[in-house]
Design a protein around this nucleic acid. Structure first.
Lengths: 337, 337
DNA sequence: TTGTATGCGTTATCAT
DNA sequence: ATGATAACGCATACAA
């Protein structure tokens, strides 16, 4: 049922080679205008559509990119997806989305992959013979083939925002895994750096284990319980910075339940600037990680490389910023909480 | 650099045909165990991976599904994506995501497509020679190749929920396009049907034009402005049902600004049960459309069809339900608002 | 049982 | 200028 090149060739009275050349505009020597017209006409009449598989087989390029994310519900991924799909389409590439490395690792089905994650999680050792990839993730330094942002900077931004508004009693909601205490270490460092530069009299850093790193509701619960406990313990604070928006949202809930007003009594700032942040009450001030632009850059560079253009991309570090909304305000004068 | 079948054949001292048959488990007659072992071993040593393109070219199946959504930021799409990708992967299919019909319409790159939208937007006329597709969208009747839910039922559910709690003054926030007044007509009907069965003394149905049907922030604005205006006009009401969550969120905001308590003074129920609904304040009661399960069923049926199994799927209508959260409560006794 | 040969739809390299 | 023809890597019908 599928109409092929040879169908067009037969109908237009020329050979497949000629048809291929004409349709691809790759004729080495001038071809009679009427021949070209006849071929185009035939292709049109027959509704000819080149078979992308056959073409990919012979050219070695499938014009398809892979997009990997460990969790498809990850706010980072959601923010990336639209930008990546749009840019890929603009550059003539299709997009295969997968939460399995297997699906998008090997060359053939896809020409290259954009990985939401660290380079080492997609290393050559684990995937022998994998194709080109560009990684989008947080990192503290420029790394090869990586479009990154600094979580240290981001968390410093968040903390500084609070300090600049006069907050001197700040709680940081971090989340350590049992063993790997470095899960979000850059964020811890960013928090501490901001405090070090300030004259804050109290520096409180509260940390609790988090069972499932990827469960959004568990993180919400975590933020909720921690703030609830601090409140119960009578700890005094006017600002909270959270490791991510879900924890911040949980904190918000605990504060509300306790009758603490945000931002009048306590300011809260989240991290990632997910869609959830914007529709919280009050709308959550949150660190905006540049994932959408990162995704676009990743596609651009990857395609440059795949298209054989000069490839001198050695990674880039994009700046984070702060989406200031209504969950933060100047610190209140000290009163009983 | 890529290792092919013939490489494995050479190394194991047999022919490509044999290797192909062994590796695919399609040997018609028993093959010596040691030969099989030798071939498997060689394939392993060489890290042989079949070229999916070549295989697809000869078998005519790319083992890839297309997933189309007009807007990749659509809450419906987001809820579908994870379920669809997961189910597709489980059944051995890859997934190409595209916001362009072109990208996933023609056979070759993809074997079939799941369309988030009505069948007619992907009709045979507009895409001649397109491949099998299954549609996921709202519909009031069972339709061929469609996994649907009833918006009439959903909105009736939402309204009934309010009525059952004693609300007699309900506002419906609908949104008509200028010309096409049928955009969400089933929802209007559902609202009216619920009212018809009740003894509500006041039935208020408020409608306003909405410039861009797909802009989430515009819809939010729309809900905000409409409620703000009703409040200013002194209209009395204790319940609001909105066409979607964004409009409901906007309404929530307007109520809060006006000092109206939700749900004590006014109950609000949204539609779609997006992630935004859950993290609103108060968490929004919302109609849950069964898009995730719909996506799974769509994949299952589509794959059945593609795999040549008996295909007697003529469409299905899935039930909607209500995610009851904290934005709804029994109607207050009539007091000055 | 297993090897050989053909075809899938293109592109690209030759001759002509 | 254009027509054969050889790959591309694989599956498979057919021959041996």
């Amino acid at each position: 049922v599928a109409v092929t090149l040879s169908d067009v060739a037969r109908k237009s009275g020329v050979s497949v080679g000629t048809v291929s050349r004409v349709l691809n505009g790759k004729m080495v020597s001038p071809i009679p205008a009427d021949t070209i017209a006849r071929i185009r006409r035939a292709a049109e009449d027959l509704h000819y559509r080149p078979n992308p598989l056959a073409r990919a087989l012979v050219t070695g390029k499938s014009q398809t990119l892979g997009l990997f994310s460990r969790e498809l519900t990850d706010p980072h991924f959601l923010q990336m997806l639209e930008a990546v799909e749009s840019k890929a389409r603009e550059l003539g590439y299709h997009l295969i989305v997968s939460s399995s490395l297997e699906g998008v690792s090997r060359k053939g089905r896809v020409d290259g992959t954009i990985v939401l994650g660290e380079p080492h999680c997609f290393a050559e050792e684990s995937i022998p013979g994998r194709q080109p990839a560009i990684y989008v993730f947080h990192s503290e330094a420029i790394e090869q083939d990586m479009v990154a942002w600094s979580d240290e900077e981001g968390m410093c931004l968040a903390t500084t925002h609070l300090l600049e508004q006069g907050h001197k009693h700040v709680i940081a909601l971090f989340c350590y895994g049992e063993e790997k205490a470095t899960v979000s270490y850059p964020k811890v460092q960013g928090f501490r750096r901001a405090l070090a530069n300030s004259n804050a009299t109290v520096r409180e850093c509260w940390e609790a284990p988090c069972p499932n790193q990827y469960s959004q509701s568990q993180q919400y619960e975590n933020g909720y319980r921690n703030i609830r406990r601090l409140l119960a313990e009578g700890v005094y604070f006017t600002g909270i910075v959270a490791r991510n928006d879900f924890i911040a949202l949980g904190a918000l809930c605990a504060l509300r339940e306790a009758g603490v007003n945000v931002p009048q009594d306590v300011s809260v700032v989240g991290y990632t600037d997910s869609i959830q942040a914007a529709c919280a009450d009050p709308p959550l001030t949150s660190v905006r990680t540049p994932i959408a632009p990162a995704g676009e850059i990743a596609v651009e560079q990857l395609v440059r490389r795949l298209d054989g253009l000069r490839y001198d991309f050695s990674g880039v570090l994009l700046p984070t910023s702060l989406s200031v909304r209504q969950s933060t305000a100047p610190a209140p004068q000290r009163t009983a909480l």
